[in-house]
Design a protein around this nucleic acid. Sequence first.
DNA 1: ACAAAAGTGTTCAGAGTACACCCATGT
DNA 2: ACATGGGTGTACTCTGAACACTTTTGT
Lengths: 236, 236
Amino acid sequence: MAASLTPYKDYDSKSKFLFAVDCTVFGVSENRLRLLIFEREVEPLAGEWSLLGSFINRNESTRDAASRILLELTGLDNIYMEQLHCFAEPNRDPGGPVISVAYWSLIKINQNDREFNVDNHKARWVSIDEMPELILDHGEMVTMAIRRLRERAKFYPIGFELVPKEFTLRQLLSVYEAIFDHKIDDRNFRKKILKSGLLTMLDKKDKTTSRKGSYLYEFNKDTYRQLQDKGYNFEF
Amino acid sequence: MAASLTPYKDYDSKSKFLFAVDCTVFGVSENRLRLLIFEREVEPLAGEWSLLGSFINRNESTRDAASRILLELTGLDNIYMEQLHCFAEPNRDPGGPVISVAYWSLIKINQNDREFNVDNHKARWVSIDEMPELILDHGEMVTMAIRRLRERAKFYPIGFELVPKEFTLRQLLSVYEAIFDHKIDDRNFRKKILKSGLLTMLDKKDKTTSRKGSYLYEFNKDTYRQLQDKGYNFEF
DNA sequence: ACAAAAGTGTTCAGAGTACACCCATGT
DNA sequence: ACATGGGTGTACTCTGAACACTTTTGT
């Protein structure tokens, strides 16, 4: 028990719990919304598919713990991350009384996938419609995370977390198609996204996908931050 | 430790925590968004203002615990309630390593305030702009809860949780004014809310506020549930 | 010259916004 | 008759939705 001014006097008699975080990590590749899953290494349930998680230590917050996990995995420490929900059904974990706080995060797949390969985790990107059964309540976490992601994506500039620093409109459109799982009219998309003021057109073209080449954009950080606070309608 | 198939083998060596829930309870009265606060009864920090909370037991979920608290307080068990966030900063509680899951809920003030009076809790409704300092991170919980409430209220039919079973349009409008903290044009409000299909006009009038009397409405449960899933734009 | 992706504009319908007067009734 | 709150309609603007052809350029 940590140093404290006036400890709870019946501290020892109360129920205590282990505390864990689990991360739902999303990315988009090949026009699909994908999720990073792991082969669990510890008993119980070793060898089954799960989210990446960790117990938390006495001196870290849940957010610290989630960042720590993502850093170990990707080598990146500026990943978009939000708390999702605390899962605490009694007996949710056959390993003991463990309460878990789920986080969800977004990463740019192509930018990082090399690092996953050299990593010693047994990780796999799966499309969200081809997800295998996950252990414990991790399936429920994913369902909730997808719902939350779609809700955020509708009103906050979130698609940008899934796209490289410089990107084409087609790439961005395709991220939104993957998140919302429906086709988007490209003319209306361009019109609306350009009107938002979020994008700055660069004087460069990406020639990898067509002979004509398509303009690269980056996003305008000021507008981006404003819209994170105020919200904007990103329904297409 | 509960019965389990294969317990974590280093269970005893890991950090363990007490686990609590705290409830942010909102209501609307006299055109103000209000919050229920309590004089804390236990040490440490007894006598200061706080949210209503409780430790959770081994065999209840956080949701059960939050419902339990609200039931004790109000005598009602069908209160609108959502999980807000898990607060776990190290040393957030001087009483020991306690992690808290915050919930927020909405209740109809006039319907229940009698029960608060006979209750032995030292409770008080305060307008959100006249809130005193709260203990620990409870102020932060409230700030986040207000933000979440406003977000929900914009897109989901939530105002109805704050209004009696039969209500006038003026009452409903005034709930939305309180939540969003700005005046709403009553003609546009009527037009939009009636178009949503959420309301059924009753063949009764409330004559307590004017000589002419104003029609009472109730909400249409089917439409209500649909809009809870799909969402609707409740910005006025 | 042709294939393949990029880029561009218009029309229509529906929703939001601003705004001012008459209605019903108890006293 | 009048005071009080309840109830109603219109014009304008803006946004969203549907929809098809031209441009560029490497081969």
